[in-house]
């Protein structure tokens, strides 16, 4: 703002001018209506914090009895017999993680493909429709996925699981106990209700949310860089790989973790498919699996006070696990070049 006239002014005048050029104090007096309104808004906003706080608080309070009685062995015991004091979440946590990993392995490639298709390949006319369909898929109730998994997918996956175990049984997690690989007439029941089937169903359930986050990120890839790549003679895939994918790297990781958070918490579909076992069961093709949430759904009805407390402790562990995964996901998304978009 230094103009010639200002430079020729005396020091006093300069000081005065500087004084008057200070930003005016804008004192805003909220009227009564607005003060109430702002108060209501703030308290509504706080309600979310209160609810989340209460969830943590009450689960901890209710869980303290069970946690106090078994101490650290809660994390190492595989059995679940709360009334005889022998219980822990080692088996169910392992089961939850196994199912979630299978779900991620199923969901991420398909989501990546679908998100790229919608944002890069789909004709403009059907783009809106496809986005709506992804949203719709996210709203399909999990009990419907469970029905489909149990009454349809199970029969289709069983022969594949059998074939896998017969030909790749030497890989530890693909082996199946109680089935003789050389006997082609092995009963199929040993391949039902496995982590694999539950994982595939959960994978399909989280595909929409993962897809929509990825698509959102991809669609923000800068148009200038896209055009530059194409203008330099890149093929479409070359452009996608070097511009869209490298731009959306953070978004892809974030979306994957977001999906992981969902997969960890899925209840009903898993409950309907698996047959619960209380040992760490790493053989994914074999009958028998477990997860924290399906344990709660399975045992809450018959639980005594101690049993309920133990279930609350399991719920608390699940709550903390999903919170950590989710915060990690959002911080990765926020720090990536594509920014917090979800």
């Amino acid at each position: 703002m230094a103009t010639k006239t200002q430079q020729s002014l005396s020091k006093d005048a300069l000081a005065m001018a500087a004084d008057t050029q200070k930003p005016r104090q804008l004192k805003y007096v909220w009227d009564f209506q607005d003060r109430i309104f702002r108060g209501v808004m703030r308290s509504a906003g706080s309600s979310v914090l209160v609810i989340m706080g209460l969830v943590g608080l009450f689960l901890t309070l209710r869980a303290s009895e069970a946690l106090g009685s078994v101490g650290f062995s809660f994390f190492t015991t595989q059995a679940w017999e709360p009334d005889s004091g022998n219980f822990g979440i080692a088996a169910v946590i392992a089961g939850t993680v196994i199912i979630a990993i299978i779900a991620i392995v199923v969901a991420v490639p398909f989501s990546l493909g679908t998100a790229l298709y919608i944002s890069e390949y789909a004709p403009r006319r059907i783009k809106r429709l496809l986005i709506t369909m992804v949203d719709l898929m996210a709203a399909i109730p999990s009990v419907v996925f469970g029905l489909w998994g149990f009454f349809f997918l199970q029969n289709e996956v069983t022969p594949v699981a059998k074939w896998l175990s017969q030909n790749f049984g030497w890989i530890p997690f693909l082996s199946v106990q109680g089935s003789d690989p050389s006997d082609p007439l092995t009963s199929n029941t040993v391949f039902t209700s496995s982590s694999l089937i539950a994982g595939i169903v959960v994978g399909l359930m989280i595909t929409p949310i993962v897809t929509s986050v990825m698509r959102e990120v991809f669609s923000q890839a800068p148009i200038g860089e896209r055009e530059a790549a194409l203008g330099l003679g890149s093929t479409r895939w070359g452009m996608v790989r070097n511009v869209v994918l490298s731009f959306g790297k953070g978004g892809i990781i974030g979306a994957t973790m977001l999906g992981l958070g969902r997969a960890l918490g899925e209840t009903i579909a898993v409950y309907m498919i698996i047959s619960p076992v209380f040992v760490v069961q790493p053989r994914i093709l074999e009958n028998g699996a477990n997860s924290v949430s399906s344990l709660i759904a399975l045992r809450y009805g018959e639980a005594t006070q101690m049993g309920m407390s133990a279930l609350m402790a399991a719920g608390l562990a699940l709550f903390i696990m999903t919170l950590i995964v989710n915060f990690a996901a959002s911080s990765i998304v926020a720090r990536s070049r594509s920014g917090a978009s979800s």
Partner: peptide
């Protein structure tokens, strides 16, 4: 608050049930 809302979207549904059951 927005961050917490995001975290709450990922609240496992069974935990929501447990919470109401406990309170």
């Amino acid at each position: 608050v927005r961050t917490m809302v995001e975290a709450m979207t990922a609240l496992p549904s069974i935990v929501a049930g447990l919470f109401i059951y406990a309170t």
